[in-house]
């Protein structure tokens, strides 16, 4: 059962923020969604979980350095740039 405390915790982990109204609405939606997801909880625990294996990756290319893009191209879509770097608010 999702309550607003759990929604707020998940929002923090998800790097999202909600207004009080949005938090209430999201809590209701997540309660309904998790009720649907509960379908999987009684599944046979003896079945091995699927994972992509080496078989799915055929002959991986050598892990070698190859060409990239110049910094000015990489920075083209950034909103705030200075000295070939992304500008962010002060962290410490």
């Amino acid at each position: 059962m999702f309550d607003e405390k759990l929604t707020a915790h998940m929002a923090e982990l998800s790097k999202l923020s909600f207004t009080p109204e949005e938090l209430t609405s999201m809590t209701k939606d997540m309660t309904d969604i998790i009720a649907l997801m509960d379908t999987v909880c009684d599944f046979d625990p003896e079945v091995k979980p699927y994972a992509l294996s080496a078989v799915d990756y055929e002959d991986l290319r050598a892990d070698e350095h190859s060409g990239s893009y110049p910094a000015e191209r990489i920075l083209e879509n950034a909103k705030n740039v200075k000295n070939d770097s992304f500008v962010v608010p002060k962290v410490v």
Partner: peptide, 18 residues
């Protein structure tokens, strides 16, 4: 999340195998 991972994500992967 730890605590929910096996019940949800791992079971979903088991269902994928099945």
């Amino acid at each position: 999340c730890s605590g929910y991972y096996d019940a949800y994500y791992n079971n979903a992967r088991r269902i994928r195998t099945q």
